[in-house]
Design a binder for these strands. Structure first.
Lengths: 114, 114
DNA sequence: CTAGTTGTACGATGATTGTCGAATGAAAGG
DNA sequence: CCTTTCATTCGACAATCATCGTACAACTAG
């Protein structure tokens, strides 16, 4: 087993037919994670460190894992960076209009009506 | 203070403009609570003990409180019973098409596609 | 009045969660 | 080779959560 072929452990992503709605709702019920999703709606792909959230790097890694294992985001390696993207099409395939309804609701509620 | 006027404490319900989306997502990310919501979509109003869930009464009370404080359900007293209803219109007013997207997604996922 | 029904309140308990700091690893650049 | 950058893993911690059993309160029915 040639050591030169060693890589970091491959990231696990569920298939769309494995998505669990309750896992997705739980993943989106956290303000930091919702900010991540909202940011990814504006930018197709981002490096981990470029999200406008104010938590420690290890905490951010935790939130990415929750979103990734629920099927909300996809991550890929590129050298030193880990790029993150929304799985918009997969989510739309499995749960049509769900993500849009949630993110729209979130953004409409950021400034609560008086 | 006439003792004859004593009542059980009035149930607190948030106004639609106080609804917090993240609280609602958290409330709906539990299988027992999602079953409650799903059941209420079929029946407008139900007594507490008539929900097809398999938890202890005190646990059920806990779940009702979470849903009520998030704005998902409304409860009213009637003699010995406590009646529970979905706040469908209030939810639609504050977060249009949200509840429908979520419950539809939940029901579509109950029998996972092969 | 007494007994049964309906549902809550309280306390306990074990599991999960969000947070962080320190240590680690892998890649890029000097 | 050494240093910096990027992000992870691990362990710890306090907070929250879902669950239950017991006790209790309010109402209804006999």
């Amino acid at each position: 087993m040639p050591r030169s072929q060693r890589r970091r452990p491959t990231l696990v992503h569920p298939e769309p037919n494995e998505f669990d709605l309750l896992d997705i709702l739980h993943a989106l019920s956290d303000p930091t994670r919702m900010t991540i999703v909202q940011t990814l709606r504006a930018t197709p792909e981002r490096a981990c460190g470029t999200f406008p959230v104010d938590v420690a790097p290890s905490t951010l890694t935790h939130h990415f894992r929750v979103l990734r294992e629920a099927g909300v985001i996809r991550q890929r390696e590129d050298g030193n960076r880990r790029w993150t993207a929304l799985r918009g099409e997969d989510l739309e395939t499995r749960f049509p209009s769900l993500l849009d309804a949630i993110v729209t609701a979130y953004e409409s509620g950021l400034t609560p009506p008086r």
